[in-house]
Write a protein that binds this DNA or RNA. Structure first.
Lengths: 129, 129
DNA sequence: CAAGATTGACTGCTCAATCTTT
DNA sequence: AAAGATTGAGCAGTCAATCTTG
């Protein structure tokens, strides 16, 4: 499991980095935001979504913000919290990079497995939660 | 897959670190050496075994060497190469840590899966090679 | 020149400490 | 207190450059 994950990740990550300068985690963040109400989400909720530490998410947000892909916004219901909000540029890049990444996943992952394999894998991984 | 791997790894790694000061990769290295002829193996072969870069393996070896768990030895057939050779202390620690780690894996992984699940998972992952 | 190993610089991640607001 | 966020320190990993030997 370690080895399969390590090699798969390495390949997917390097393609994504060379084409869009994004890490898998950064893309996942963008994807979550794109699917969120008003394209925004609190940082700590985002961290829970993607199973990363809050501090990691904060730094990924720094990088994405510097590139103009998202903006931090104060949260009106709770002054402690801050939203990460996807910009138009961010949304555009998210769509493009996700399409490209999906093709990579298709090639490197989905195409090698049957429908049954995939379901079984899903079940199995869910049992490890 | 990302999430399952991330969380599983985090837990196993933290237990191993607190009990033995070893990372998963370091333990895997020790294990390979313990199973190797004369308890030694060339660094670059080791890297291939565990699917890590040679430079990473070199640095893990540095750390293990500082702790007296392995020694670097010149390779007699090829002066360029160097062996990582497990010391007695290294072998002892490898056995102990592996037993402990296996218990963790049993608990966190094996016990949650049936025999069938496990075989299917193995097949599936093998297809991703 | 190619292969084995090491080193430096960079990224990704976590944890602990801190600051602010509830 | 406790929760949201940021920041600093440190480990794990990669790639590119270098040195040495085949």
């Amino acid at each position: 499991l370690q080895h399969a994950h390590r090699e798969l990740t390495r390949e997917l990550e390097s393609r994504l980095a060379e084409r869009y300068g994004l890490s898998l985690s950064a893309l996942e963040l963008l994807g979550r935001l794109a699917a969120s109400d008003r394209r925004r989400r609190r940082l700590s909720w985002l961290a829970g979504d993607v199973k990363l530490s809050v501090s990691r998410v904060s730094r990924i947000a720094d990088a994405l913000e510097r590139r103009g892909l998202l903006e931090r916004q104060p949260c009106e219901e709770d002054t402690r919290a801050t939203y990460a909000c996807l910009t138009d540029a961010g949304l555009a890049l998210a769509r493009e990079a996700q399409a490209s990444h999906l093709a990579d996943v298709q090639d490197r992952f989905l195409n090698r497995l049957s429908e049954r394999d995939l379901c079984a894998l899903g079940e199995t991984l869910a049992r490890l939660r």
